[in-house]
Design a protein around this nucleic acid. Structure first.
Length: 778
DNA sequence: GCAACATGGGGTTGC
DNA sequence: CCCATGTTGC
């Protein structure tokens, strides 16, 4: 291990790393070296005699877990890190549940249902109940159930809870409780858990079996949780149980980056942590090592519009850097073109590689125009998000065979493959099988096994027996051969591989390649050699459980390929890029029209915007389109309200530099720039500034709406005063804006934001006192 | 049972 | 516009 690992930390980081026993909360601002602290702390614990076996570290993404593991290994120098328990909540609990779920009657090779599987089960149930699936939309029902599970509410409690029932009545969907109940029973019958069950059932087991709880309390003597602001009540309670004996819980988070409430996360968890335990040590990491001053200042000011935050003051020693460019285009296609052009230009001008750029959007559907324009300019890119590899139809079909082989109770998968490829087991036969399984209270698989005694007719019987024999032969192989050999056999026996091979259409070819890739991934899984002393679970069951928890972002194999990345802001959390384009900054899109009804929703959107801004290291473009296609028709959007919350000082609202803009707007309308940029957005900015020089909205060829009138010459000997003494009512002098009056001061005491009216300097401005250089006049 | 077509509906984010 | 599902006709 490197001896000097503590020297590489700043004071606060060191304080966090060297705190060994007792609850610790690290409030880690964006780009403040959070991962470094977490990994160094793990190393430090081990250096101080803590056994790797006793450390549990929970993250939100597989990627974060992988990164953490790698970095710990780097610090420790050897392979000491391999016994650490590092993973996502879901994957760690899935692993523990393989050992413990039998206590609740689940097979240890239980299937994990992804969202699609779960919705499909729900749809069958809704139809069985003769409910209209247009009214009881599986998606809606799923979200209700998910929310219930995330707050540890089972079907019984759900049906008895007045508030919940009231909500369902008001939404005119009183049957959701019943559906939930049937869904839970069906999943159990199928030997399957959905994502939320991985948390919920873990909690149930810890609560119901004290010996299990004790076991893990003593195993996980030190617990670390990353992104604590994104934990939901289920995760919170589990952590509380596991940590109750030793109270060596270290949580790391940033309330300003809490963006997962739709998944049940509650920001309260981090806001309340100090009250949950006695003697909580709180460390704040406030130095940002990532971004320029301009970027950080804009981010700070934006987030200051939210209420009730943990007080912190994020600052940086980095240079001021470029201004943030704000760009408006006429349409979404022009937005795409502008971004692609600018990327091309920046590559030349500032010698960036493709990999230095990221395009961030609110919704996956926005990727299209960027794909097109990047393709046109032959700029390589990769889209993150959307369908994961394992959600593709051909992969799910293939995996369904493996799932059924491992867990014959899994009806969802069984139904998927029972007649794929076609083998003469049609709709009527399947329905009959379902009825029989309900009548006799046995699984569908058992009905199939005993098809003869249930009187299926000759042709059908033959088909069923053939199917049963085939699956049984796979099962028989499992004991003797590894997962890869079994999978190859599945491909052969079912004819799937051959069939796809013979399909010479482009899609057929792609599907064939995908199945080959699946086989490769199984091969890789089985053949990765165990490290010395390490016993990885290489079973098919373990493989299957892993892959359902993988997302698109986890197909990391060519992480380093030199491509522009496109992803949602959610997917970008935890990442950083030299150049960031945050696009689609329009009302109804960002903030999403779905999230503007309450202050809480809006604040979460704002945090999302904050996350987007803070991904940028050096350069940041914010773009929005005047109108864009939505569901086939052109809709007009107002610029996002967030754009008005940014301090003018660091924003260039008139970005038109280089040839890129001319290219971007040259197509079609001749004066796209003056029309699109000057009018709407700029007008609104002007209205907010009563004292601003009256910029008329008359169409001028190229207005330059510089928001920083730089005519002011500072008084001789201008020296800024201590911002602490500034109060509303004072007259101050600003280097650029000239003389002004402070009309209001808001924000946290160490991050105060003053509203100042500069009669000659562009009117009302919001200024961060910590950064602005102001001289008190009187 | 399947391919070709018609219809309707979608309002985010993701383990 | 794009997808997923339902309907029709072989």
């Amino acid at each position: 291990m490197k001896a000097n690992y503590l020297d590489e930390l700043n004071e606060q980081q060191r304080e966090a790393v060297t705190h060994i026993n007792g609850p610790l909360m690290i409030v880690a601002g964006a780009g403040s070296g959070k991962t470094k602290v977490l990994t160094t702390r793990i190393a430090h614990l081990m250096r101080n005699g803590v056994d790797a076996f006793n450390i549990l570290s929970l993250t939100f993404t597989n990627k974060a877990a992988r990164e953490m593991k790698e970095r710990v290994e780097k610090i420790l120098g050897g392979s000491e890190a391999r016994n650490l328990y590092i993973g996502t909540f879901h994957s760690v609990f899935a692993r523990l549940l393989r050992a413990e779920a039998s206590r609740l009657g689940y097979p240890s090779d239980f299937t994990i249902y992804d969202t699609d599987d779960a919705k499909s089960v729900l749809k069958t149930i809704i139809n069985e109940l003769n409910l209209d699936d247009k009214h009881y939309k599986p998606n809606f029902v799923y979200n209700r159930i998910s929310a219930a599970k995330n707050s540890l509410m089972g079907p019984e409690e759900y049906q008895l809870d007045h508030l919940v029932q009231q909500e369902d009545m008001r939404a005119n969907r009183p049957m959701i409780g019943k559906i939930y109940d049937m869904y839970a029973k069906r999943c159990f019958k199928n030997g399957a858990m959905d994502f939320d069950d991985l948390l919920f059932k873990m909690y149930v087991i810890l609560k119901a079996f004290p010996e299990v709880l004790h076991k893990y309390q003593h195993k996980f003597k030190y617990i670390m949780i990353d992104e604590y602001q994104d934990t939901n009540p289920a995760q919170y309670e589990i952590i509380k149980l596991l940590g109750a004996v030793n109270e060596n819980i270290c949580v790391v988070g940033d309330d300003a980056q809490s963006i997962y409430s739709f998944r049940g996360a509650t920001i309260e968890n981090i806001l309340q942590f100090e009250k949950d335990y006695d003697d909580v040590k709180v460390v704040k990491l406030e130095q940002n090592y990532r971004s320029t001053k301009s970027i950080l200042n804009v981010a700070n000011e934006v987030i200051a519009h939210n209420k009730g935050q943990i007080e912190k003051n994020l600052w940086t020693d980095n240079t001021e850097g470029d201004t943030i460019k704000l760009v408006r285009t006429m349409t979404d296609n022009e937005e795409g073109k502008f971004v692609a052009d600018t990327i091309a230009e920046q590559k030349l001008r500032n010698h960036y590689d493709n990999r230095d750029f990221v395009i961030l959007y609110r919704t996956n559907a926005q990727s299209r125009s960027f794909e097109e324009s990047l393709r046109r300019k032959a700029i390589p890119y990769r889209i993150y998000g959307g369908l994961s590899f394992y959600q593709r139809k051909e992969i799910k079909d293939f995996v369904a065979y493996l799932r059924v082989t491992m867990n014959t109770r899994d009806e969802e998968s069984l139904k998927r493959i029972i007649n794929y490829p076609v083998r003469g087991i049609g709709k009527t036969t399947i329905e009959k099988t379902v009825v029989l399984s309900n009548e006799h209270n046995i699984t569908m698989w058992e009905v199939l096994e005993r098809a003869k005694e249930f009187g299926f007719k000759s042709g059908t019987l033959e088909a069923i027996e053939g199917f049963v024999t085939m699956i049984s032969s796979f099962q028989a192989m499992l004991g003797k051969q590894n997962a890869y050999d079994v999978a190859v056999m599945v491909g052969k026996s079912t004819n799937i591989v051959k069939e796809l091979f013979n399909d010479k259409t482009t899609e057929g070819l792609a599907r064939y390649e995908n199945v080959q890739e699946l086989l490769n991934s199984i091969k890789e899984f089985t053949e990765t050699p165990d490290e010395e002393g390490e016993l990885l679970d290489k079973s098919m069951g373990s493989y299957l459980q892993q892959i359902t928890l993988l997302t698109d972002a986890d197909q990391g194999n060519n992480e380093d390929s030199d491509v522009v990345k496109l992803m949602t802001i959610h997917a970008a959390k935890g990442l950083e890029f030299p150049v960031v384009f945050t696009v689609g900054l329009e009302e109804t899109l960002f903030p999403s029209g779905m999230s503007i009804n309450t202050r809480e929703e809006l604040e979460e959107e704002r945090r999302l915007f904050y996350v987007a801004i803070t991904r940028a290291k050096a350069r940041l473009w914010l773009t929005h389109a005047n109108s864009r296609y939505r569901f086939g028709n052109l809709v007009q959007n107002e610029p996002s309200r967030f754009l008005e919350e940014m301090p003018d000082k660091f924003i260039d609202r008139s970005y038109a530099g280089g040839g890129s803009v001319r290219n971007a707007f040259g197509s079609g309308s001749t004066n796209g720039w003056s029309n699109s940029n000057a009018n709407n957005m700029f007008d609104r900015m002007q209205k907010k500034s009563p004292a601003a020089p009256a910029q008329s909205s008359s169409p001028k060829p190229m207005p330059k709406p510089s928001s920083v009138p730089v005519n002011h010459v500072p008084t001789a000997g201008f020296a800024p005063d201590d911002p602490a003494g500034m109060q509303p009512g004072m007259e101050v002098e600003h280097q650029k804006f000239g003389f002004g009056n402070i009309t209001a001061i808001e924000g946290a005491p160490n991050n105060r934001i003053a509203t100042i009216v500069f009669p000659k300097g562009g009117g009302e401005k919001k200024i961060m006192l910590n950064y602005a250089k102001l001289r008190i006049v009187k």
